[in-house]
């Protein structure tokens, strides 16, 4: 596949998505004292068949964004379109049939499987929920097939999660996500809890499945090297905002936002020779609290290029002429 964007139409569109969590204080009369703006107005599209990578540090809202698309956290504002249906205004009951077409793979391979259910029942649960199988035999066949697809032995269907290793558990999670034959899967840090030697197994599995079943992924992770490997396009989030979106090549070769540059620089390359020659941009300070974010550009207190105006003007995500590349940095846009 070449570096140009796969263009088979838009599968998911997010418009001005906001997810705010209210904060209550007080012992007897709970008073709302404000909001944690986990996701604070993001716009993006996910194209059919592509993988959109979503990166950022903890608390940047990347996981909440993924959950809000699946309506697991209901948006405070904005809209989410899935296959042209506006789904953020649907009731839980109306959403249920749609849950056959989108699913999720979770970060924690230990916590995301019910310890009291067998692997087969976990994988088959979505089939039961959506009445997909007409008979017991068909159900068993489907579960067996799913186990084979993710590289597990069908004999393992009767075992409980604690009998599996971390990598095998994550395969069960993948099989569950796949069972309803969805078109869209949110992968929420699916490999960050796994051992290094196992991570590549799961990445390759996800890549193979994408090809075989024409899946569209939203791949959420904090590690840019993993995201770069698996994604067609990458969005970088900081404190509830998307600060940059580009194809993976543009983002890596020509990162425009100072935060993206710092993130890239913070990922060490496993090669001492390359590392010795690389420029290391170390940004100072910590990620501020999303409860009380900085004014203007939220990144300005840590930004090495910050100007006085950055603390006042709120930058907007703007397209770079002639490229599939958006950045939200006033400083860059003025200079560029």
């Amino acid at each position: 596949m070449s570096e140009e964007i796969k263009n088979n139409g838009v599968l998911v569109e997010v418009k001005d998505l906001k997810v705010h969590f209210p904060i209550f204080r007080g012992l007897i009369r709970k008073k709302k004292v404000g909001d944690v703006k986990a996701v604070d107005g993001v716009d993006f599209q996910i194209l059919t068949g592509e993988t959109l990578g979503l990166v950022g540090e903890s608390g940047c809202g990347k996981t909440t964004t993924g959950r809000a698309i699946l309506q697991l956290d209901r948006p405070t504002g904005g809209q989410v379109f899935f296959e042209d249906t506006e789904i953020s205004s649907l009731e839980e009951g109306e959403l249920r049939p749609l849950r056959r077409r989108m699913s999720m793979i979770f970060q924690d391979p230990f916590g995301s499987l019910d310890p009291r259910m067998t692997a087969g029942d976990i994988i088959g649960e979505p089939l039961v929920i959506h009445n997909i199988c007409s008979s017991k035999a068909e159900y068993r066949d489907q579960v067996e097939e799913l186990l084979l697809i993710v590289g597990l032995d069908p004999i393992m269907a009767d075992r409980y999660p604690h009998e599996f290793s971390g990598g095998q558990r994550q395969r069960i999670g993948v099989a569950r996500a796949l069972s309803v034959r969805p078109s869209f899967i949110v992968c929420d840090e699916p490999i960050s809890a796994l051992d290094v030697s196992i991570q590549a197994q799961i990445i390759n599995l996800l890549e193979d499945l994408q090809e075989e079943f024409n899946l569209t992924y939203l791949f959420i992770a904090h590690d840019l090297s993993v995201v770069r490997h698996i994604s067609d396009r990458i969005a970088v989030m900081y404190l509830g905002d998307i600060v940059e979106i580009a194809t993976r090549r543009d983002l890596y070769r020509n990162p425009l936002h100072p935060y993206t540059r710092a993130l890239l620089s913070a990922i060490p390359i496993p090669d001492p020779v390359v590392e010795a020659e690389r420029e290391h941009i170390i940004i100072q300070g910590e990620v501020p609290s999303p409860f009380n974010p900085p004014s203007g550009c939220k990144f300005h207190p840590r930004c090495i290029n910050a100007r006085p105006s950055c603390s006042q003007e709120i930058p907007r995500l703007q397209k770079i002429e002639g490229q599939e590349h958006w950045v939200s940095c006033e400083d860059y846009l003025r200079a560029g």
Binding site: L70, L72, R99, M104, S112, D114, H130
Partner: peptide, 9 residues
């Protein structure tokens, strides 16, 4: 896993 069950509908 409860979250996962919700996500499955």
């Amino acid at each position: 896993y409860v979250e996962a069950a919700r996500a499955s509908g």
